[in-house]
Design a protein around this nucleic acid. Structure first.
Length: 424
RNA sequence: GGAGACGUGGCCGAGUGGCUUAAGGCGGCGGCUUGCUAAGCCGUUGUACGUUUUGGCGUACCGUAGGUUCGAAUCCUACCGUCUCCGCCA
């Protein structure tokens, strides 16, 4: 959510920013509702002040056995006016809130202006192109040969997009999760958390999934809960409605969670194998930072994700998102993409974003400045570190051998017990 | 799922319709003292919104939302949460 004061005082800047995200914005309606709201408040507060004064006079009169009938009559009238103005104020505020909640975050000034993903610049490329002297298989062919997963039975159990990992495939999935968690904890100083995989309406609203993207979520109506699309949601809300000490910033959490996405409207795209799933596993990093350091923290966040890919020896590139491709809540975002040699394409495995105070305002996440003064909103950031399904794809396809086996990087040995996945 | 108890400031805790501008304490902050010394004394203390001549002024906030009343932390209703006991359960 944007600061209403910012919309009021820098209307043009806000409008330009929103339009660069290809989102329409009706600032006129917002500003007139804002004005109406403030007018009502002034009026109702004057009436409440009068009522308070008169009520004290009633108390005095009653104490001295005087006649308070006229005063009581007047106060009763004021009460009725207050009630009607209160109702009006609630209605105006509801309309205003609804509009404000629909407005996306404004891109940071460093973000290149562009219409869509086709204009995203590549800002970094790393690693050698893997070119063995044999015909490369896709992860689906490798997995089928080695018995790593079973999409047919996953579909039987739950439906398409819900994968069943089997044997070494299940262990490899678990190994990757543990490897990434340990890496971030030990090398990058994150604190591990293991959050609920469901969240309530308020929590989903803080991070920006609601109210705009209700259709993208799995919902449990009986209990008014949603399955989380990413650990970003519960972890960012750890400090919802809290005031933190400035000296405790930045706070860095990493979390494993299963993630659930309906992917409504994306049928036909990437439906094969692991490329797009309704349920997948991801290690997520979340930061709570001082506003002055959030962009430096975005760079190290991205670096923390890159190091996972480098430790696994996988070729990757970094994309900077143009304004038109930025998500609703993000002010700036990098995507990390792995090269999948079997699929012969780049696969997005991480998204590292700075949300500035957009989520913090929705969730009332603040810090108290060291030298005293008012609590102010902090900045939230998050990045995948990283998502497993596409990581698994790139890993299998990169490390496949000519004989149908897969030779995994040494760094996974402590987690897998072996580096070789062989045909039975 | 059933029964009961309880939700008050950063924390503890008093408060049964107007003398609450939420007592008192702890903690924090500022100052004084420097032979009460792992101390003592004094002062101070939250959030949001509106308004403003930037000094203030006003309004609201005692789990949340309604209601009763001239007036609600206090009375009523619903909901949420915590704790205890019972039931069920990995």
């Amino acid at each position: 959510m944007l600061d209403i004061q910012r919309i009021r005082e820098n209307t043009d800047e806000v409008r330009t920013g929103i339009e660069s995200k290809n989102a329409p914005i009706d600032t006129d309606t917002i500003l007139s509702l804002d004005q109406e709201r403030r007018d009502i408040i002034s009026e109702v507060e004057a009436l409440k002040h009068e009522r308070n004064v008169l009520s004290h006079q009633v108390a005095e009169l009653k104490k001295s056995k005087g006649d308070a009938t006229a005063l009581i009559e007047r106060t009763r009238e004021i009460g009725a006016q207050i009630k009607s103005l209160d109702d009006k104020q609630h209605k105006v505020e509801e309309q205003l809130d609804n509009l404000l909640m629909q407005i996306p975050n404004i891109p940071h000034s460093s973000v290149p202006v562009g219409f869509d993903a086709s204009e995203n610049p590549v800002v970094k490329e790393w690693g050698p192109r893997y070119a063995p002297g044999f015909e490369l298989l896709t992860h689906l062919e490798i997995g089928a040969a080695l018995g790593l997963f079973d999409f047919t039975r996953g579909t039987k159990i739950a439906g398409p997009g819900f994968p069943l990992y089997t044997g070494s495939g299940a262990r490899l999935e678990r190994a990757l999760i543990n490897f990434m968690l340990d890496f971030h904890i030990e090398k990058h100083g994150y604190t591990e958390v293991l959050p609920p995989v469901v969240s309530n309406r308020k929590t989903m609203t803080t991070t920006g999934q609601l109210p705009k993207f209700e259709e993208d979520m799995y919902k449990i109506p009986q209990d008014d809960l949603y399955l989380i699309p990413t650990a970003e949601v519960p972890v960012t809300n750890i400090h919802q409605n809290e005031i933190l000490a400035e000296r405790d910033l930045p706070i860095r959490y990493c979390a494993y969670s299963a993630c659930f996405r309906r992917e409504a409207g994306s049928y036909g795209k990437d439906t094969r194998g692991f490329l797009r799933l309704h349920q997948f596993n991801k290690v997520e990093m979340v930061k709570f930072t001082h506003p002055d350091t959030s962009y430096a923290e975005l760079e190290t966040l991205r670096r923390d994700a890159e190091e996972i890919l480098e430790a696994l020896g996988l070729e990757y590139r970094v994309i900077e998102l143009v304004t038109g491709d930025l998500s609703f809540a993000a002010a700036k975002c990098y995507d990390l993409e792995l090269w999948a040699p079997g699929e012969k394409r780049w696969l997005e495995v991480s998204s590292c974003s700075n949300f500035e105070d957009f989520q913090a305002r929705r969730g009332a996440i603040r810090f108290k400045p060291e030298g005293g003064g008012k609590a102010q909103l902090l900045h939230t950031l998050n990045g995948s570190g990283v998502a497993t399904p596409r990581l698994l794809v790139a890993l299998l396809e990169t490390y496949q051998q000519g004989d149908g086996s897969v030779l995994l990087p040494e760094i996974l040995k402590p987690y897998m017990g072996t580096t070789g996945l062989h045909l039975k």
